[in-house]
C-alpha cells in the first residue's frame, strides 16, 4: 500500500465500506444532504459500482427551508446521473407550522429533520442508510462507528457500540434494527476539499464567495434567501461578499465573509482559518453534548 497517497487510501477505504454495506443490506439508501460531504460520498458510490450505477436510491429530507440553490442543484444532479431521488418532508410538521423562526432551531431540527428522517426510513423500510458525517466534525461523532447500529426506535446507544477491528464490520441486526453507515468517517474537511479539487466534483455554488443579501442576526450572517424571513426592527439587508462552509436550512446557517471564489481559494482559506466549520451552525451550540443527545434521539 506504500504506493498509494493519503487520498487514494481514503478513497479505497470508502469504496470498501460502501460495497460492504450494499452487499449486506436488504434495502439500502443514501442520505443526500446536497452538501460537499454528500457530493464526495455520492462520487465514491458512483465509483464503487462502475460501470453500473449505485444499487440504491438517494433520499433527501427536505425541511422546506433549504437554500433554493441547493434544491436546484439536487434536482439537476439526480437527473444528470439518472439516479432515483426520494424527497421526504414531514407533512405533519409542515401542517403544524413548524419553522426555524417561530419554533426555534431546536424544535425545527427535531421535527423537520430528525422526525422526518425516521418517518422516511420507516415508510420505505430502509435498513441501511449512508450518511456523509465525518469523525473530525464534532466530538461525539469522533466516537461513532462506521456501521452504527440503531434500535427499531432509531436510537443510538453510545456506550454499547460494537467494536470494529480491522475492517471486519459486523452487519448483523435484528428485525426492525437498522444501520447508519458512514463511508467518510476518516476524512477531514481538508481531505474533502482536496478530493473535490482533484476529482472535479460539482458542488453547490453557495460554497464559493459571491455578493449575497445578508442580515446580521445574533452574531451570525444569515442570507435572506426568500421573503419568509422577516426583518426585525433595526435589521437591514446588506450585500456582502460571503460564502458558506456548511450548508443546511438557510435561517440556521451562518455565512462567513470571504473572497474565496475557487476551490484553490477555499483550500488556502481553510488552511489559515481559525474557526471550525460547524461554528456557523446554530444548532450545535446549545450545549456541549447537544450532538450526542440529538444522535441518541435519531439525528444522523
Amino acid at each position: 500500500m506504500k504506493h498509494m497517497t493519503h487520498l487514494q487510501r481514503l478513497e479505497a477505504e470508502s469504496i470498501f465500506i460502501i460495497r460492504e454495506a450494499a452487499a449486506s443490506a436488504e434495502n439500502p439508501v443514501m442520505l443526500y444532504s446536497i452538501g460537499k460531504d454528500s457530493a464526495v460520498m455520492l462520487h465514491l458510490a458512483l465509483k464503487a459500482f462502475l460501470p453500473g450505477k449505485p444499487p440504491f436510491p438517494l433520499l433527501h429530507v427536505d425541511t422546506t427551508w433549504k437554500f433554493r440553490e441547493m434544491i436546484e442543484f439536487r434536482d439537476r444532479r439526480a437527473k444528470e446521473l439518472g439516479l432515483d431521488l426520494i424527497v421526504h418532508t414531514n407533512q405533519e410538521g409542515l401542517r403544524a407550522g413548524v419553522n426555524p423562526f417561530a419554533s426555534g432551531s431546536r424544535v425545527h431540527t427535531d421535527v423537520m429533520k430528525t422526525e422526518a428522517l425516521k418517518q422516511a426510513l420507516d415508510k420505505y423500510r430502509f435498513d441501511m442508510a449512508f450518511g456523509g458525517a465525518r469523525r473530525d466534525e464534532e466530538k461525539s461523532r469522533a466516537k461513532e462507528r462506521v456501521f452504527s447500529l440503531r434500535t427499531p426506535e432509531h436510537r443510538w446507544d453510545a456506550k454499547n457500540q460494537r467494536p470494529e477491528p480491522w475492517r471486519l464490520f459486523n452487519t448483523r441486526k435484528r428485525k426492525g434494527e437498522s444501520f447508519r453507515v458512514f463511508p467518510l468517517s476518516n476524512w477531514t474537511e481538508q481531505d474533502v476539499w482536496d478530493y473535490i479539487a482533484i476529482e472535479n466534483i460539482p458542488v453547490v455554488p453557495l460554497y464559493f464567495a459571491a455578493p449575497r443579501p445578508i442580515v446580521k442576526r445574533d452574531g451570525a450572517l444569515i442570507m435572506r434567501d426568500d421573503d419568509r424571513m422577516e426583518l426585525r426592527p433595526g435589521e437591514s439587508i446588506e450585500t456582502m461578499m460571503v460564502r458558506f462552509r456548511t450548508l443546511g436550512c438557510y435561517p440556521l446557517t451562518g455565512a462567513v465573509e470571504s473572497s474565496a471564489a475557487s476551490i484553490e481559494d477555499i483550500i488556502a482559506e481553510m488552511r489559515s482559518s481559525r474557526v471550525s466549520e460547524r461554528q456557523g451552525r446554530v444548532i450545535d451550540q446549545d450545549s456541549g453534548a447537544s450532538m450526542e443527545e440529538k444522535k441518541q434521539e435519531g439525528y444522523f
Binding site: A197, A210, E257, S258, S259, A261, I263, E269
Partner: peptide, 22 residues
C-alpha cells in the same frame, strides 16, 4: 480571513457554473 488585498480578485460574479468551479 483573506482581507482587502484579496478582495479585488474575489469580486468575481456570483453565478459560477459547475464546470468552471472545479
Amino acid at each position: 480571513l483573506p482581507d482587502e488585498a484579496d478582495e479585488a480578485q474575489g469580486s468575481t460574479p456570483a453565478a459560477i457554473e459547475d464546470e468552471t468551479f472545479a
